[in-house]
């Protein structure tokens, strides 16, 4: 009994030693950042004076998480305070949504959220702690993302028109990379609405699975994430027929939009920060300016070019607030077409 105890204690002590060493390695980064403190005494409010938490309502590794972790070091530099990314996934995005809705509105907790998914969450889910309009939009830093319609590289359909015309005479299989009430569902519903074409829909769990089905010849076309689609197109496996943005993409200006080909399907994806309801306006303003500053910096622009992130130009607080409000009003009217075009 004594022997076990001694050995156990020794093991635990050695373990503690190793981890305190590895812990030191991580902490040293944080102390470096603190040196740049005191830059932020703009105006009357002294903000920020302690670390800021950005809640990501999804698992690590997803699109929103990756984008947030990409901006994190630059935002940290701009604010002069550590920025902590915290994942609170679950229930679509409703777990993180509710968490931030109930967080202290002191400017030290924000949510990184995608539009229009956050609006869909508000419009389709019960039991939410706050309405979408109660959150305070801060600013956005991912603004060049949308939904692409992808076919195989050897597909007989060279343009969107070819594809739609062909779909009128024979039922096509369209793969989606999400299920009911996802953004892909909305893109399909809008496409079906403007063309009057019915597809056989095949919803997949992720863009990767949808792409595999496309490559294997199990579906005729897919809607997938933009990064997946562009990567596949660059590799010569797939061809993007159209993107759902209002104007052409700045990262791939040679791809035509739905709109310019005569089909009014516009659904853009943006990722921005939201402050909890009742956060003081001057604090939101400081955060918004710092975020825009970080997202406009030379280093960040190089970074997103390297990682092929569809970031585009940042939106300021005024632009972002207006955009969110306009989108909310638009989707409130449009959300019922989801019911008109169910997946199954």
């Amino acid at each position: 009994m004594k022997g076990f105890f001694k050995k156990g204690l020794l093991l635990i002590l050695v373990g503690l030693l190793i981890f305190s060493l590895s812990g030191c390695g991580q902490n040293s980064g944080a102390t470096n950042d603190k040196k740049e403190e005191n830059q932020s005494s703009e105006g009357a409010v002294n903000y920020p004076t302690k670390p800021i938490t950005i809640v990501v309502p999804y698992n690590p590794g997803g699109g929103v998480d990756t984008s947030t972790r990409t901006i994190q070091p630059f935002l940290q530099d701009a604010l002069g305070q550590p920025v902590v990314v915290e994942n609170r996934p679950g229930g679509g995005m409703s777990v993180g949504y509710n968490y931030v809705a109930g967080a202290k509105p002191d400017g030290y907790t924000f949510m990184a959220a995608p539009i229009p998914t956050m609006i869909f969450t508000d419009l389709t889910l019960p039991n939410l702690k706050a309405k979408f309009n109660e959150f305070k939009p801060v600013a956005s830093w991912v603004n060049d993302d949308c939904s692409p319609l992808v076919v195989r590289a050897d597909s007989p359909y060279k343009t969107l028109k070819d594809f739609v015309e062909a779909a009128k005479s024979k039922t096509m299989k369209l793969g989606l990379s999400g299920g009911a009430y996802s953004t892909d569902h909305m893109t399909y519903a809008m496409l079906s609405e403007v063309t009057g074409v019915k597809f056989n829909l095949v919803p997949y769990g992720s863009s990767g699975e949808a792409l595999a089905a496309l490559e294997g010849g199990h579906v005729d076309a897919i809607l997938a994430s933009l990064v997946t689609a562009i990567t596949a197109q660059d590799a010569g496996q797939a061809k993007i027929l159209a993107v759902s943005k209002n104007e052409r993409l700045s990262i791939a200006p040679d791809i035509p939009t739905f709109k310019e080909q005569g089909y009014d399907v516009v659904i853009e994806f943006h990722i921005g920060l939201f402050a909890p309801p009742n956060t003081p306006d001057d604090i939101v303003k400081i955060m918004a300016d710092k975020l825009v500053q970080a997202a406009s910096s030379e280093e960040f622009r190089n970074r997103v070019k390297e990682v092929k992130s569809p970031a585009g130009e940042p939106m300021t607080q005024e632009e972002w607030s207006k955009y969110c409000q306009d989108e909310y009003n638009r989707w409130k009217e449009m959300v019922n077409i989801l019911e008109k075009h169910p997946l199954g």
Binding site: P89, G90, G91, P126, G179, A180, P203
Partner: peptide, 20 residues
């Protein structure tokens, strides 16, 4: 949880936690 194709909530008893 929420079913992928129809979006139906199955056995969630109104709880947000169980949706996923």
């Amino acid at each position: 949880g929420q079913e992928l194709v129809t979006g139906t909530y199955r056995y969630t008893f109104g709880s947000l936690y169980l949706i996923s």
